[in-house]
Design a protein around this nucleic acid. Structure first.
Length: 444
RNA sequence: GUGGGUAUAGCUCAGUCGGUCAGAGCGUCUGAUUGUGGAUCAGAAGGUCGAGGGUUCAAGUCCGUCUACCCACCCCA
């Protein structure tokens, strides 16, 4: 055999998912999909490629440099790989006014591409998982999204997490209260967002370095870091001269009321006025889920963005949604050992061995019988000794092998061997599928 | 985009002062064992020491260039 002349490699920041890993990813994806359906969210799929004009001008100058352009030689259309799932959603809502009835709740679980410099947990192709409600301005929609997050994380097995809730509108009002507006506001957000990383003193220092007056910094920091039993009351008092702030706080109170009605436990969320989402388009409440024990950073992020759809539609459409950091969640499932113990590295439940030339047809028949009964069955394909066949099943993680030699065939039975404990049983052929279910149920 | 680190077998890595340094463990394959996997034992295959230069009598080892990967920052999921 000639040596391969082309070195097998992947483009930077791209990954293959081999079966063992893929099975775990599918497990997470399936639970998330189930919960979305439970909440009445519909699936949506959009193309990997969008027109450049659809994407450009939505993410800011820096982010735009990371958009993959996707021309082919001689191509007449300017196309690009999607950068997220939110802008395509906005496009879809604007494009199908007759097919899509508002409010529209959709989810999308799909890859996006960003030409960033890869790092641990950061890739150039990664899956995003978004759920949004388009066309509902009430806080009941925001509460649905938060409830959805709690249910999804709980079903996945997460126990120690907290959803931080803040309001972009409130932060803007606080900025105004301290005399910060326009471009300086974005810088203010960016610094406050580092609160977890660099602490109150770090944020204070950075704000002063950015040129904010010391007095304004003190006012802002006092407002966002004071902890009381009723944070909304505290801010309401402190900011009662600002109608915008009061409106934002009223929204948050409303949101808390809906969360209670939906049965979201109070321990699952908390108002945190130092939490800021990076993206510029949020207009109302914002939320982010952090794993609290151990402290492993955020796994969901979202909020209300009432103006984005308007970029395609011309009129504003109130929208709220969240992104589940599905790649991060998958990493943490492993780290926190949240996969079910029997998840295994294969989808195969039974491997049917092949004894020799004279029995191979019978092995194929048995395989077909098991499959017809719904057992996920692999027929061994090579002519190798039985020991090798069993070893190969074991290595792959197949829990059961079926042994079908001349003796078994003559007796009309099949012998199953359970690899985890070596337990063997001869079973009448007609009872085979049933026995497989029983053998898998007991030991592995 | 900015700064730092690393690169030796399929994987994880050792390799001293430049001079028998081409090594270990794991994995793979073969056999002990032609109707039974894991354990054990024996054996085998597998490397242009990331690439291409320079210094030197001599380079895996020293120097600079390139590439890839990792980490931090920026940004974000």
């Amino acid at each position: 055999m000639a040596k391969p002349k082309i070195e097998p490699r992947l483009p930077k920041g791209m990954r293959d998912f081999l079966p063992g890993e893929m099975i775990k990813r599918e497990y997470v994806f399936n639970i998330v999909r189930e919960v979305f359906h439970l909440y009445g969210f519909e699936p949506l799929q959009t193309p990997v490629l969008e027109l450049r004009d659809t994407l450009m001008g939505k993410y800011g100058e820096d982010a735009e440099k990371l958009i993959y352009q996707a021309q082919h030689p001689g191509g007449k259309e300017e196309v690009a790989l999607r950068y997220d799932l939110t802008v395509p959603l906005a496009r879809v809502v604007a494009q199908y006014p007759n097919e899509i009835a508002l409010p529209f709740r959709r989810y999308q679980l799909a890859p996006v591409w960003r030409a960033e410099r890869p790092q641990r947990g950061r890739y150039r192709e990664f899956y995003q998982c978004d759920a949004d409600i388009v066309g509902a301005s009430g806080m009941n929609a925001d509460a649905e999204i938060i409830s959805l997050i709690v249910t999804a994380l709980t079903r996945l097995g997460f126990t120690s997490f907290s959803i931080k809730i803040n309001s972009r509108r409130l932060l803007t009002a606080i900025g105004q209260f301290a005399g910060v507006e326009g471009a300086a506001l974005a810088e203010l957000y960016r610094s406050i967002d580092k609160f977890d990383k660099i602490g109150a003193d770090g944020v204070r220092e950075e704000l002063i370095k950015r040129g904010l007056p010391a007095e304004a910094v003190t006012r802002i920091m006092d407002l966002i870091t004071t902890h009381t039993d009723s944070p909304l009351d505290f801010l309401d008092d402190a900011l009662n001269a600002l109608p915008d702030a009061r409106a934002a706080i009223r929204q948050l109170r409303d949101l808390a009321g809906w969360l209670e009605a939906l049965g979201v436990p109070k321990t699952a969320y908390a108002f945190d006025f130092t939490m800021v989402r990076g993206l510029g388009y949020y207009t109302g409440p914002i939320f982010e889920t952090i794993i609290t024990e151990p402290n492993l950073g955020s796994i969901t992020g979202g909020g209300r963005y009432d103006d984005l759809v308007g970029l395609f539609k011309g009129e504003s459409v109130p929208t709220v949604g969240t992104s589940l950091g599905i790649e991060r969640i998958i990493d943490l499932m492993e780290a926190l050992n949240l996969y079910p113990p029997n998840i295994g590295g294969t989808v195969v439940q039974v491997m049917v061995t092949v004894f020799d030339d004279t029995t191979q047809v019978e092995s194929a028949r048995l395989t077909a019988e098991l499959r017809a009964a719904g057992i996920r069955t692999e027929l061994y394909m090579l002519d190798r000794p039985l020991g090798k066949q069993i070893g190969s099943a074991d290595k792959k993680g197949v829990p059961l092998v079926a042994i079908l030699g001349a003796d078994e065939i003559a007796a009309g039975v099949v012998k199953f061997k359970r690899l985890v404990d070596g337990h063997e049983e001869s079973i009448q052929r007609s009872q085979a599928a049933e026995a497989v279910r029983r053998l898998l149920g007991n030991g592995g």
